[in-house]
């Protein structure tokens, strides 16, 4: 389980990223990411009437860190402890045959399970919607939630399935060939969201192109 990071770099002078190929544009800086997560945490508290029965399920890799941070904020803002887990969807993906096998992420069932709970799936980028579809299938194997919602840091459009997010950090109109990258300080150098035009080897930002 990733640890909640206390460091929140506030530098506004982020011009390059580790995987920056020189052709990228930063959309959210570290303090923007922090504010966006603050807002989503408040919205979850508001929309779920104080966070009762809420279980956050992060989709590895970066969704899991985001779920961690949201849980910490909800604890701070609403003095309520929400359930927290991780849901790896790799085995339910429909693109393994075309994109190839990938290592499995971790699935951690929240304490108390998900039966009858309000499950909020947390991911970094919402793109085609195929990851979320896989997550909905994977949820079936864990139990039967009362209802399922979706929180994402960035919604970049180009949906291929009838799926929408309930909580969106930032709506980001993009061209299909662009790539949206999310860096989080837990595993990357800093918090940021940026658009890369060139295709880069690391494509952790959710869906296949």
């Amino acid at each position: 389980m990733p640890a909640q990071s206390n460091s929140r770099p506030s530098s506004r002078h982020i011009t390059t990223s580790p995987s920056d190929s020189g052709d990228s544009k930063t959309v959210l800086h570290a303090d923007d990411v922090a504010r966006v997560l603050d807002r989503i945490a408040h919205q979850i508290l508001e929309k779920t009437r104080g966070g009762a029965d809420v279980v956050l399920l992060g989709i590895p890799t970066r969704g899991a860190y985001l779920a961690d941070r949201l849980a910490a904020r909800i604890r701070a803002f609403g003095s309520v402890e929400v359930g927290l887990g991780m849901l790896d969807v790799t085995l339910h993906r429909d693109d393994l045959r075309t994109q190839g096998v990938r290592p499995l992420g971790k699935t951690v069932e929240p304490v108390g399970g998900i039966d009858g709970k309000l499950v909020i799936l947390v991911d970094d980028v919402l793109f085609s919607g195929r990851t979320v579809r896989a997550a909905l299938d994977a949820l079936n194997d864990l139990g039967r939630p009362r209802s399922v919602q979706l929180a994402v840091l960035v919604d970049r459009g180009h949906r291929e399935l009838p799926i929408r997010a309930d909580y969106v950090g930032k709506n980001l109109p993009t061209a299909r060939e662009e790539q949206v990258k999310v860096s989080l300080s837990e595993i990357d150098d800093e918090d940021s969201v940026y658009i890369a035009t060139k295709s880069e080897p690391r494509s952790e930002s959710g869906q296949p192109e």
Binding site: P2, P60, L96, R97, T98, G100, P103, G105, K106
Partner: peptide, 14 residues
């Protein structure tokens, strides 16, 4: 993933 050669294996992230 046998429809195409599997990509190089990466380290598993948590």
């Amino acid at each position: 993933g046998v429809d195409q050669p599997a990509p190089a294996l990466e380290e598993v992230s948590p």
